[in-house]
């Protein structure tokens, strides 16, 4: 067999990796540009701030923007304490054992379940059994269950990455375990936990399948958490599938993409500032 000279080998590897990166970037840019090109011309103050008329064929998308803000926030508000609590328990209060491995395995399985299954469960459990109906609350609870495994996993990794020496020092200064968690472990795990939160928010904003059956698809402005409302993703899905209005679908998609990008940008900025302050 002919040997490939090391230099050629190196150059080839570098080129392949560079191409892979370029391709990834190109796909991202293509999607964003494509959607924005079709959607941006639709955007106007009326489109953003008025209620839809005629099933969404005309009018704006204000209620769906509102639902897209409320549902992920509700999901995070429910999943964050539960998830971080679980992560703290698994890392700080238990020793590695068969039980923790089973819990972790179960959690990873939960993370892999398709969102439509969460939607079905939410429909049967929250909407029907608990009689919450199609509502923001049902939707938020369902989303919370859906993102919980991710929050637990990322929080756990973040907590584990806090150096043991910090805990040791804290204990040696007479701090209790809980004080140590409050004062040393959580602050230092925060950037990692926030990563999980951002992943969760991102998934919630884009979620359709889990919400159609739980939050419903009402176009009215929700008055309380017990009202049904559709998010931008669901709105987009219905507009496109029913062939109601391709223009408004693209307009909605453009707002959706811009909000996801800005959420990520803000999170990125906050995380950097936080890490700089603590470096």
């Amino acid at each position: 067999m002919m040997r490939i000279p090391a230099k050629v080998n190196q150059a080839a590897a570098a080129t392949v990796m560079a191409l892979a990166t370029l391709l990834t970037l190109a796909v991202l840019i293509f999607i964003v540009v494509f959607i924005l090109e079709k959607g941006l011309p639709i955007l106007s103050r009326t489109f953003l701030f008025s209620v839809p008329r005629d099933m969404g064929k005309a009018g704006g998308i204000f209620p769906t923007i509102l639902a897209t803000i409320i549902l992920p926030l509700l999901a995070i508000a429910l999943a964050l304490p539960l998830g971080v609590g679980t992560a703290i328990y698994l890392t700080e209060y238990t020793r590695e054992s068969r039980l923790t491995r089973i819990i972790r395995f179960g959690n990873d399985c939960l993370a892999g379940i398709p969102s439509i299954i969460f939607g079905l469960f939410g429909f049967l459990f929250f909407v029907t059994l608990l009689e919450m109906g199609w509502s923001l609350l049902s939707g938020g609870l369902t989303l919370a269950l859906m993102i919980l495994p991710t929050i637990i996993r990322t929080s756990e990794e973040a907590i584990k990455s806090v150096p043991t020496s910090y805990r040791e020092v804290s204990f040696s200064l007479g701090a209790t375990r809980w004080r140590t968690i409050q004062r040393v472990v959580l602050p230092n795990a925060l950037p990692g936990i926030l990563t999980g939160v951002m992943l969760g928010i991102g998934r919630s904003i884009g979620e359709t399948a889990a919400l159609i059956f739980t939050a419903g698809s009402s176009l009215r402005l929700p008055q309380s958490l017990f009202d049904s409302s559709r998010t931008m993703s669901v709105h987009f899905y219905i507009l496109a599938r029913e062939g109601l209005s391709t223009e408004n679908a693209y307009g909605t998609a453009a707002v959706l993409i811009l909000s996801v990008l800005s959420v990520n940008a803000v999170a990125y900025y906050l995380m950097h500032r936080y890490m700089k302050k603590n470096a």
Binding site: S165, Y166, V169, F171, S172, L173, G174, T176, V184
Partner: peptide
């Protein structure tokens, strides 16, 4: 906790908190 407050410790590597 009381024991550790009375009998304090300095570690091998300087380990200030961030």
């Amino acid at each position: 906790e009381k024991v550790r407050k009375k009998v304090g410790m300095v570690f091998q590597r300087p380990n200030p908190f961030p």
